[in-house]
Design a binder for these strands. Sequence first.
RNA 1: GGGCACGUAGCUCAGUCUGGAUAGAGCGUCGGACUUCUAAUCCGACGGUCGUGGGUUCAAAUCCCAUCGUGCUCGCCA
Length: 596
Amino acid sequence: MFREFRAEVEAALADALAARGLPTDDLGIEEPPEDVPATLASSVAFRLAGEVGAPPPEIAAEVAEAVDPEGYEYLARVDSQGPYVNFHAGEAYLADTLVAAQDGEYGRLPDRDTSVVVEHTSANPTGPVHVGRARNPILGDAIARVLDFAGYGVERHYYVNDAGRQVAVFTWAYETFDESDLPKPERDRADYDLVRYYRKGNQFLEDADPEEVEAAEAEIESIMRGLEAGDDETYERVERVVDRVLSGMRDSLERLPAEFDAFVKETEFIRDGSADDVVDRLKDTEYAVYEEDAWQLDLSAFGIEKMLVFLRSDGTTLYTTRDLAHHEWKFANYDAAVTVLGEDHKLQADQLKAALEILGNDTDQLSHAIYSYVNLPDGKMSTRRGTGVDLDDLLDEAIVRAREEVEKRLDSRIRDDELDEEDVERIARQVGIGAVRYDIVSKQPTKAITFEWERALDFEAQSAPYVQYVHARCCGILEEAESRGIDVGAIEFGGGEAAADLDPSVLDAPEERDLLRTIARFPAVIEEAAEDLEPHVVATYTREFAETFNAFYRECPVLAAEDERRRDARLALVNASRATVANALSVLGVEAPTSM
RNA sequence: GGGCACGUAGCUCAGUCUGGAUAGAGCGUCGGACUUCUAAUCCGACGGUCGUGGGUUCAAAUCCCAUCGUGCUCGCCA
């Protein structure tokens, strides 16, 4: 209801100002501090002081007087406090919020009939996913979920780099080295198995005799040429390695979970000729220059000083050339495209956008979500060098520690439900993985993260379990209600005749009203997170929500409420809370346990 | 060196885009609350030159300029 209320406030204030011939371009609508009872406020009086020639408090009082709440559904009262105009929501605001949030899909915004392709992760298929890379799928998946919940038609794509030097090196190494020369794999899975060849190959290229290296390089180059020429046999050799490594990486990603609608291969854009088509079209533009036998793009008109080579002197395309074809394909098939990238790809992303514009595309369709890398306290993670923490190890450790916490609490449980081994397993997994995911998704993407075990696996407040616990509490109350024969789903609202009819106005405790007001804001939080591609605002919201709910939980007994009307209203409020926190967690990709 | 990001309590972070009411949380420290719908919870105390210096403004953590520190980047790699 917050979004509706905000729209009413804007309209009412603009009307009042316009009627007095005052400018309405900046209404100064803001959320007041916590101790101010209003739902929204305006600081417009400051700006009008010069215009009107009166002190702001005087103007604020006048404006408050001039705004007419008549005819609005939720705007009940307007007053002023010092220089601020305060807007108060009426009973209908809270009552309608309570009703709306009974819907299990509460917070989902109306369908926008707009398709968005979210490309994320797209890690080179060279080995197991490590924690340094894990921010991408966690952020990317959350962005996809937020957009979906905000009413977009979302597809998730993983762009597979199966045409670059790295996979050529990999293919050569796989075909060259013998398993008996390799260390034991860290796990019994394809990506852990094959990465040994990749590491061995890279090590060889660094350390071996120059002659041997030269021979190896010749082989690697022939693989790259074969790919470029669309040679089927080479393609099959490479795919044999790529597909197997990728299947292992997918297993890791699915644990987060991060799943994809499509794995789009770079080689597709070579084989269907679209990369060549891009080259031909770029050559004809005024930005194209032929220097040192290579075709390049002068992007200085776009504020980019670095030249973009789009065709090598040997006539082969580059990653970016193929990515241009890839993006034109996205533009042809979707209304919008979002790509989640590490900050090290920032320049490349800018070049890509400029080149797409030169090719005549509307680049407003393309947004990049850029995040900073996750480093270890003593340096970078690298698949090639084998430094870094594998995502699987982090998730395993998280589950082990979560399990210890569950077991530690088993004895002291007040609640007399019996958790069996299956429950313990489930809770450990939900909490452990949720904690890792939440830790990463709750921070601004631009901020660098240094990975530390203890911090990533801290289950205390401001973590996933803190929020998950609220959900479990809601479920506990609702379950208890059901077991006492109260049909929460059948509680009806306002004006009905049954005794169980619910009257939201009995929710008059400050904790109840705070909770409803917080629930009312949820759809606006989704809207903001989707617009800015910043799911961390949803995480911030879940914390505020959990705090507000816990205050309610402390002060307002539900099942032991003084009378039935109050009990039923509170049950509805718990039901609304459950839907809100469940959906907020779902948007973050964090599971919501029904018991903990 | 050029470009881009980041710098808020001892530590980890919200708030910055869109300037506005005494700058908010958590961890840690100290002190309290379980015969109660789950204590992975709650309540209280302590803790801040919002990197620094200028500027714009009635008003700056927020905008502009400079500066310091950190990270990323500046391949016919991806």
